[in-house]
Lab assay of single mutants.
Amino acid sequence: RRVTVRKADAGGLGISIKGGRENKMPILISKIFKGLAADQTEALFVGDAILSVNGEDLSSATHDEAVQALKKTGKEVVLEVKYMK
């Protein structure tokens, strides 16, 4: 599913991630910080795999590559996510 997140002037997306190619895992949302941008969408969940950020494929990204992709986003971020059981 596709989720658009609008960041506030102060603060980032409000998520922590884990996983990555070096761990043989997808990039997973490991924490959502209450009240910040990702939480306010009410459409992102701990355990979601982030498949892409603004069209940039993260399916084979390392953890560091995913962190950089998320950091360089502007005010509006489009995440392609899939819930992983």
Rank of each mutant, 00 (worst) to 15 (best):
I15N: 00
K34A: 10
I15E: 02
L79E: 06
E22V: 03
I17V: 09
S30G: 07
V77I: 08
L51V: 09
E42F: 02
P26H: 01
S30M: 04
A66C: 05
A38T: 08
L13I: 13
I29V: 07
P26I: 00
I50H: 04
V53G: 04
M25P: 03
I29M: 04
S59L: 08
G14M: 03
Q68I: 09
M84F: 13
K71S: 14
G14F: 00
E65G: 05
I17E: 02
D48F: 00
N23V: 12
I32M: 05
S16N: 11
L51E: 08
G47S: 01
L58K: 02
Y83W: 09
R6C: 14
R6L: 13
Q40L: 11
K72I: 10
S52C: 05
H63I: 12
A8C: 07
S59D: 04
G19D: 01
V5W: 03
S52I: 02
S59G: 08
A8W: 09
K7R: 10
E56T: 14
T4N: 06
G35C: 06
A10P: 13
S52Y: 06
I15A: 02
N23T: 12
V3G: 02
A61Q: 02
V3R: 03
D48M: 02
K7P: 12
G14P: 06
V67C: 11
Y83P: 15
R21V: 11
I50A: 02
F33M: 12
R21G: 05
K31T: 07
A69K: 11
F33G: 10
V53H: 00
K72V: 11
R6F: 13
I27C: 03
G12T: 11
R6Y: 15
M25L: 10
R2Y: 10
N23I: 10
S60G: 13
I15R: 01
K72M: 11
A8Y: 08
V77L: 09
G11P: 10
L79W: 02
L58T: 06
M84S: 11
D39R: 04
N54G: 05
A61R: 04
Q68L: 10
L36P: 05
V67Y: 10
S30N: 10
K18R: 13
V81A: 05
I17K: 01
L51R: 07
R2P: 02
K18A: 13
S52V: 04
H63Q: 13
V46Q: 07
L58G: 04
A8E: 12
E42G: 15
Q40A: 12
G11N: 13
K75W: 05
T73Y: 07
L36C: 15
K72L: 09
K82L: 10
A66M: 03
L70Y: 02
K34Q: 10
K71T: 12
E22Q: 09
N54H: 00
E80R: 07
A69D: 07
F33D: 15
M25T: 10
S60F: 11
D9N: 13
K75L: 08
M84Q: 13
E22D: 12
V77W: 06
I17R: 03
S52W: 01
S52R: 10
S60Y: 14
S52P: 03
V77Q: 06
I17L: 09
Q68G: 08
R21E: 06
K31G: 08
F33V: 14
Y83E: 15
L28F: 15
S16V: 12
K75F: 07
G11L: 13
V46Y: 00
E22S: 04
V3Y: 03
R1V: 00
L79C: 04
N23H: 15
D39K: 03
Y83I: 07
P26S: 00
T41N: 08
V53I: 11
V81N: 06
T62L: 03
I50F: 02
A8D: 14
G47D: 10
H63Y: 15
S60A: 13
G14I: 00
I32Q: 03
G74S: 10
V5N: 00
E56R: 14
V67Q: 11
R1Q: 07
I17C: 02
L51D: 07
M25R: 08
K75A: 12
V5I: 15
G35F: 00
T73Q: 11
L36K: 13
S59N: 09
D64E: 13
L51Y: 06
V67R: 09
G55V: 01
G19A: 02
G14S: 01
K71D: 14
I29H: 03
V67L: 13
Y83R: 15
I29D: 01
L58I: 14
E56C: 11
D48G: 02
E42S: 14
A69P: 00
L36Y: 10
A37P: 14
I32T: 02
L70S: 02
A37Q: 05
V46S: 05
A69V: 14
I50D: 04
Q40F: 01
D64M: 10
T4C: 11
E80Q: 09
S59I: 06
K71I: 10
I17T: 06
T41S: 12
F45G: 08
E22I: 03
F45K: 12
K31W: 14
K24G: 14
L28N: 00
V67M: 12
R1Y: 02
V5K: 02
I17G: 02
S30V: 05
T73M: 06
D9T: 14
L70V: 05
I15T: 01
G11Q: 14
L58P: 01
K34V: 07
E65W: 01
E22P: 00
G74P: 09
R2S: 09
V53Q: 01
A61W: 02
K24Q: 13
V81L: 07
I27W: 00
A69R: 09
S60W: 09
E22L: 06
R1M: 06
V67F: 06
M25G: 08
K24I: 00
G47F: 05
I29E: 06
V5L: 13
L51I: 11
A37Y: 00
M25I: 03
I50Q: 06
A43W: 01
V3L: 03
I29A: 03
A10V: 13
P26Y: 05
Q68V: 08
A69M: 13
L79Y: 00
T62H: 00
G55S: 06
G19I: 00
E42W: 05
G12P: 09
T73F: 04
S59C: 10
R6I: 13
A38Y: 10
R2C: 09
I32E: 04
M25V: 04
R6T: 14
E22T: 05
T73N: 07
L28E: 08
D39M: 01
V67W: 10
V3E: 00
I27N: 04
R21M: 08
I29K: 03
K31P: 03
Q40S: 09
K31E: 12
L79S: 06
K7Q: 11
Q40I: 07
Q68W: 08
G19R: 01
S16T: 12
T62P: 05
F45S: 13
K34M: 06
D64S: 13
D9S: 14
M84V: 11
